[in-house]
Computed example of a mutant assay.
Amino acid sequence: MMNSAQELAEEYLRLGGRRLLVMDDNILSTNSWEADPLEAETFWNREIESLPPKRRSEVMSFLPSINVT
C-alpha cells in the first residue's frame, strides 16, 4: 500500500515531471536538466513545494535518483 508521499511523487512523474533526486550527505534536493511540462510544474508547486521540509523530503525520496550505487 502506498503512502501519500509516494502517491504525490508518482502523480508528479505521471504528469511528466523530470526532477531527479540528488542526495548529498543525507541532504535531499532535486535537479532537472529539462523543464517540467506545465501540468507537472503546476502540480509540484501546488502539492509538493508547499509541504513542510521533512514531508517534502519524504516525497522527493520516491523520485528517480541520480545517485546510482
Rank of each mutant, 00 (worst) to 15 (best):
M1W: 06
M1S: 09
M2H: 12
M2L: 13
N3A: 02
N3W: 01
N3D: 04
S4M: 06
S4T: 14
Q6G: 07
Q6A: 05
E7H: 01
E7W: 01
E7F: 02
A9R: 07
A9F: 03
E10H: 07
E10F: 07
E11W: 02
Y12R: 01
Y12N: 01
L13D: 03
L13G: 08
R14G: 12
R14W: 11
L15Y: 06
L15K: 10
L15C: 07
G16K: 09
G16M: 11
G16Y: 07
G16Q: 12
G17R: 00
G17I: 06
R18G: 09
R18T: 10
R19M: 05
R19Y: 02
R19Q: 03
L20C: 08
L20A: 11
L21C: 13
L21H: 10
L21M: 10
V22K: 04
V22W: 07
M23Q: 15
M23S: 15
D24C: 02
D24E: 04
D24T: 00
D24G: 00
D24V: 01
D25N: 11
D25I: 08
I27S: 09
I27E: 15
I27D: 15
L28M: 03
T30A: 14
T30S: 13
T30H: 06
N31L: 03
S32A: 14
S32I: 06
S32Q: 05
W33F: 10
W33P: 01
W33M: 10
W33L: 13
W33D: 15
E34T: 13
A35E: 12
A35R: 06
D36R: 08
P37W: 15
P37N: 15
P37L: 11
L38S: 10
E39V: 02
A40E: 00
A40T: 01
E41Y: 09
E41S: 12
E41V: 02
E41G: 06
E41R: 14
E41D: 09
T42G: 10
T42A: 13
T42R: 07
T42Q: 11
W44S: 12
W44A: 05
W44L: 09
N45H: 13
N45K: 12
N45R: 12
R46Y: 14
E47V: 02
E47P: 14
E47G: 07
E47A: 07
E49Q: 04
E49F: 05
E49M: 04
S50Q: 15
S50C: 14
L51R: 08
L51I: 08
P52T: 04
P52F: 07
K54I: 11
K54E: 07
K54M: 13
K54T: 05
R55L: 06
R55S: 04
R55P: 01
R55Y: 05
R56W: 00
R56C: 04
V59E: 00
V59N: 00
V59G: 03
M60N: 13
M60D: 02
M60I: 13
S61E: 14
S61P: 06
S61A: 13
S61Q: 11
S61K: 15
F62N: 03
L63H: 00
L63E: 02
P64Y: 01
P64G: 02
S65L: 08
S65T: 14
S65W: 03
I66P: 04
N67Y: 03
V68R: 04
V68Q: 13
T69G: 14
T69F: 11
